[in-house]
Amino acid sequence: MQEHTHSHDEMPHAPPAQDEKIHSYYQVLGLALKELLIEKKIITPAEIRQAIEFRDSITPATGAKIVARAWTDHAYKQRLLANGTEAIKEFGLDMGATELVVVENTPAVHHVIVCTLCSCYPRAVLGLPPSWYKSREYRARAVREPRAVLREFGTVIPESVELRVHDSTADMRYLVLPMRPEGTGKLTEQQLAALVTRDSMIGVSLPKSA
């Protein structure tokens, strides 16, 4: 593909909406791949629609349910920390060919996840990664100056708390089990799940307070 030239000006900085024009060579190429795969009967349009619907059906609310269960059911938490891949099957979720490692925040240790080499993310429990997770800035700096990066998310972790950054791989994905907020002893599992944000399960922020 290197023989095809394109100017950077043709590449939109804000990606197009569904009915927006297709601009770049690579966007046209993507449509070409789709049409060739359909013509060769490798993929059907219905399968593409279903795959998009399936992706859209997995959101951070899925991960929040797992966290709330771990906060309210000690035995489940132990299973989740011992083997995340197996424990999420109790929610009907499947990591496929990858493994899930769940890391628990405590008063002494705060965990953050990144994928410096690419964008590996626990998609099976959080859905697709936010764009900042895939950005050069986050990938480059999360491992060198994580406290400064967290401050850009409005999160200040006291110097007395150890910060551990986990670099994901294609085969191993991490999920942060945040600390249950103070004063939530009377909340139901469902109410607790509403406090668990996507960013708190990546480790760049804390859950909402009750």
Binding site: P15, Q27, G30, I48, A51, L128, P130, W132, S135, E137
Partner: peptide
């Protein structure tokens, strides 16, 4: 880090699919 949210476009969703 630009932490602003970004909705995936339909084109991106198709490539992902």
């Amino acid at each position: 880090v630009d932490t602003s949210p970004h909705d995936m476009t339909f084109w991106e969703k198709q490539i992902d699919a």
